[in-house]
């Protein structure tokens, strides 16, 4: 154990963050300002998510950290080590065993349970930001439910690309009230925002926390004649054969050979352990990657 206070942040700061979280849960989708602290990592590396995780972790928790669905990328590994060092909590790569999952840009494929909390790292919490640069104005728009502008963005997509080209950070309306940026998850994940677990969103640089309580109605914005469609690559996972998981596309040689594989590494390896094999997949072997 180190000399850090449990989970790095001091208790006063954690209380402040917990108050913001509770307010966020009470007003689903509403961005609650909080006094974001300097963290020992640069902005853009998950300082918001880390502060939220630090505020909710207990010594009994088991933590999982993913970046784009993978447990083994730099960002995920660093944050996992950070909490191992500062909180001494158990860590896991198995979605089902985690009580707190911090994520960047994905929702795990497996359905989360009521006793699990999903913490998102958010770069820009304001869904209206790219069309309305003024924070004063966007706050007023949220307060007055003045959301025409959000559809202007989708309109522009269709007029320029023939379809809603927004593929990630696809805006949603939470419980019929606030329009929310679900962080840059692929729109394939949007339907999963209605879940049994608690979802917390932390934006460190922008100093905002927001939340979706369990079983909250989350509707992706669309047009009657251009309905929302959660899309993914039209392919099955080449490793585990899964038909319905979100895929990464890998170029594997100089001849343009490519492999599609689950972006959720735990989901993929769990399936392979269970004996599922994809088109290019080898049977699961202990220690193989």
């Amino acid at each position: 154990m180190s000399d850090y206070n449990f989970a790095y942040l001091d208790e006063q700061t954690k209380r402040m963050i917990r108050r913001a979280i509770l307010k966020g849960l009470a007003i689903p989708g509403h961005q609650v300002p909080f006094a974001s602290r300097e963290m020992p990592m640069p902005y853009g590396w998950g300082t918001g998510g880390v502060q939220v995780s630090a505020a909710i972790l207990t010594p009994e928790d088991t933590l999982k950290v993913i970046d784009q669905g993978a447990d083994d990328t730099t960002n995920a590994v660093s944050i996992r080590r950070f909490f191992q060092k500062t909180a001494g909590v158990a860590v896991t790569e198995a979605t089902a065993q985690a009580s707190v999952i911090q994520t960047r840009h994905r929702i795990p494929e497996a359905d989360l349970r009521a006793d699990q909390i999903l913490v998102y790292q958010v770069p820009i919490p304001e869904p209206l930001r790219f069309l309305e640069p003024s924070e004063v104005e966007t706050r007023k728009m949220h307060a007055l439910e003045d959301y025409g502008l959000m559809h202007v963005k989708l309109y522009e997509d269709i007029s320029q690309h023939g379809d809603i080209a927004t593929a990630y950070a696809y805006p949603v309306k939470v419980e019929g009230r606030y329009v929310m940026d679900p962080s840059p998850i692929p729109k394939f994940d949007n339907p999963k925002l209605e879940m049994a677990g608690i979802q917390l969103f932390g934006a460190g640089r922008e100093q905002r926390i927001y939340a979706i309580p369990p079983y909250t109605r989350v509707v992706s914005l669309d047009f009657d004649d251009y309905p929302f469609q959660p899309t993914k690559a039209d392919h099955a996972c080449d490793l585990c054969g899964a038909q319905n998981s979100y895929l990464d596309e890998l170029i594997v040689d100089d001849d343009g050979g490519r492999v599609f594989m689950c972006s959720d590494t735990d989901y993929c390896s769990t399936r392979r352990k269970q004996g599922h094999v994809g088109a290019q997949g080898l049977p699961y072997a202990e220690g193989a990657t």
Partner: peptide, 17 residues
């Protein structure tokens, strides 16, 4: 087109066509 359509969308027009 988006400039002209904004007011319509602000009062819940939801049909792109």
């Amino acid at each position: 087109g988006g400039n002209v359509g904004e007011r319509l969308m602000a009062v819940n027009a939801r049909h792109y066509g």
